[in-house]
Design a protein around this nucleic acid. Structure first.
Length: 273
DNA sequence: GAAGACCTGCTA
DNA sequence: TAGCAGGTCTTC
């Protein structure tokens, strides 16, 4: 669930709540596999007593830089979130100085907290973050042309561009009017430029709206305050199968592309170009 | 490119 | 009760 805008929202809110600069007084791990590497005891021992100097984000990774020189790298996967108040499904709890407590919540238990010496070992495998200057039109064109793959799974590939997940991929393709199964090396300059712009646009709007949440259940994204994010009303494609396209009124189609649920407009996003 | 694994909760 | 879900990794 959490993609770039949701992770960015959480990172910003943790900063706003003063988590940076706090000492970690204690660590409680309720689901052992959240933590890597195991065992939990050594994770806790290495983290306790350090200060969270800085919170940052690259792609869907959030990093806590610790005063020890180590880094906690957090990946929320499908259902991870952070809160300053306790709740069901808290898998890891950090007691911080000044009376703050950070609760890591994760219904499906897929998320990970990795303690690493060097974040680059993980970040080095990622393509440029979609909202940084490193992600350029020129890079994007070349990366797409260099491959012969369906465009949707390609823009979901974090080693090519970091940050997009299933929702924003569908949104970007809808906005650029490109069929999700078009082959990457069949796209013209104008189409690639449109998609490049759309990727940046949907993510930027997503951040501005503090992320997206669909449905109302416990498994959905929540920000640090427990809010569901304001981007939900802005979604044009994802989860709108059968509903009319905002652009042309044609019923949106729900299919499966590369094993992922995919919604697109069969009129605006054509396969044969 | 596809399928299975990791998990739980919600919807049909 | 079966099938599905925003992510990634491993193994064909």
């Amino acid at each position: 669930m959490p993609e770039l805008p949701e992770v960015e929202t959480i990172a910003r809110q943790l900063r706003a709540r003063g988590v940076e600069g706090k000492e970690i007084l204690s660590v409680k791990v309720n689901w052992a596999r959240t933590v890597e590497p195991l065992p939990v005891a050594s994770f806790s021992r290495q983290v306790r007593g350090t200060t969270i100097d800085k919170i940052s984000r690259v792609g869907k990774w959030m990093m806590f830089s610790l005063s020890s020189g180590k880094t906690i790298m957090i990946h929320l996967r499908m259902s991870g979130s952070c809160s300053m108040t306790p709740g069901l499904y808290d898998r890891l709890v950090l007691k911080l100085s000044d009376g703050l407590t950070l609760y890591y919540r994760d219904t499906r238990k897929f998320g990970r907290w990795k303690l690493v010496d060097d974040p680059q070992i993980i970040l080095g495998k990622l393509g440029p973050d979609a909202l940084t200057q490193r992600f350029t039109k020129k890079y994007f064109r070349a990366a797409m042309r260099a491959r012969h793959r369906m465009i949707k799974p390609l823009i979901l590939d974090q080693s090519i561009v970091a940050g997009l997940g299933n929702i924003y991929a569908d949104e970007a393709l809808w906005e650029a009017q490109i069929h999700p199964e078009r082959l990457s090396d069949s796209l013209g300059d104008d189409e690639l430029d449109r998609l490049f712009k759309a990727i940046r646009h949907v993510l930027t709007i997503g951040v501005r709206n503090r992320g997206t949440s669909l449905g109302d259940g416990k498994t959905n994204y929540r920000d640090v305050a427990g809010d569901s994010g304001g981007h939900r009303e802005q979604v044009k494609a994802y989860g709108r199968g059968g509903k009319p396209c905002d652009r042309c009124g044609t019923a949106l189609e729900k299919t499966v592309v590369a094993q992922r649920g995919t919604t697109f407009c069969p009129a605006c996003q054509q396969l044969d170009q």
